[in-house]
Design a protein around this nucleic acid. Sequence first.
RNA 1: GGCCCCGUGACCGAGUGGUUAGGUAACGGACUGCAAAUCCGUCUACACCAGUUCAAAUCUGGUCGGGGCCUCCA
Length: 456
Amino acid sequence: MSQSLSLSLYNTLSRQKEPLTPRVEGEISMYVCGVTPYDKLHIGHARAFLTYDALRRVLENRGLRVLHVQNVTDIDDKIIIRANEIGQDPLKLASNYHEESLRELALLDVLPAHQYPRVTGHINPILDMVAKLEERGYAYAREGDVFFDVSKDEDYGKLSGQKPEELRAGARIIPGETKDDPADFALWKVAKEGEPSWPSRYGNGRPGWHIECSAMALEILGEGFDIHGGARELVFPHHENEIAQSESFLGDGGTFAKTWWHCGELRVDGAKMSKSLGNFITLSDALEMAPKNVWRLLFLQTHPRSPLDYTEEKLLQFKNSWNRIKNALDKAPAEVGELSEGATRFQAQFNAALDDDLNTPEAIAAVFDAVSEFNRSGDEALGATARNAMEVLGFSFETEQVGDELTPHLLELLIQVRQSARERRDFKTGDQIRVRLNELGIALEDGVDGTTWKRV
RNA sequence: GGCCCCGUGACCGAGUGGUUAGGUAACGGACUGCAAAUCCGUCUACACCAGUUCAAAUCUGGUCGGGGCCUCCA
């Protein structure tokens, strides 16, 4: 039997925190909804993927083997529309944007998923699932489309609280739709002229939006996998429909995913980021605006499940915040040796915060406490433990290479020249060296043990 | 209209029936030739109105305000 970990996660399905109990002891299977690659990544994507990255790192730190699967929805209306606009092959366009997203996420130190299944590589399993749903009466075919029949699924709405009858009341009737019920959704869509399509018993067509996640998650991770993730906005309809079709497919009492852990959405100046509002910040722009660790700190200092409001002022605050951590922990040993009392206490606080639904803000608050204590006492074990804790959350302290191997020697030389000037009380020359170096991005700091330099 | 979140000090942001969260900024002090970094100190908040309770920012009801989903979305 598998046993519970000390870590609990809030399960959207049960609306409460539950101890995480791996399906297979020592292993966690995690499926995270990925992107539809038709455009550049934005900081909303970054927040989501960084959140699951942190979760994964924490689980791995607890000794679990995590299998992280993230889908790529590489065939979809938006891809086709964009491809037609620029006269490119849709599959090529999707593939390019996917490759780009992997490169950009790597710059944020987001660990790559173990598998990136693509819809276009899983057409057969998808069609098998659609066929089985139809055979069992959960789906019906209409003029080449196939729809899931919501009325056949008794507990439809259990994830989001949206009931079919309520959906019908507010539903917009879309002309030309052949569905029996506005709440029904497409499993398979008939091909339009010039679109990529695959042959099927229903004629040429392509998968509907939700079916790919069901088919690929079940194929790769199997029934009852541990964690299904994605941003909160995906709860309805995407995840609701995934559950409906998957559990109807699995049959009596079948469980698709055990824990649904959703991260909060990102806002910009109080409103959701969208192209129409013009408040769209791409990940590549973001990385120009601040280093990766600053973004990680900004993202993780709001609870992963809460909405996060991005403002320029906040970014500035977190640049300063990160500097406080970096100034201290750069001086701490990289390797944790024997723990001191303070280090043990810190470690317990840090772990307890993460155990409670991955409360990263509280865990980082413990790090700030440790930083203050380390600055005061110089307790190296505490400093090293705090540094290690930040690394568990995916922060990095590697020193940037400055210039070539000659540069540090030249800087030492300048520091010595400046020191001689200061000893002659020629502060004008000394300050000039410091100011000019600062303009070049090198900060000099006079400490009791002499002068040190660092990159600003 | 339906489903669901949220309103915490100058700003950000955890928490939750009785305890200083934490960070940023600001101000004062220490250290320093001056900076920077660091340390010490100051700034004691939970939208509003009722109620429950020995005790509520935390529970209940209402009011006001903001946001998300219901159409593509991480």
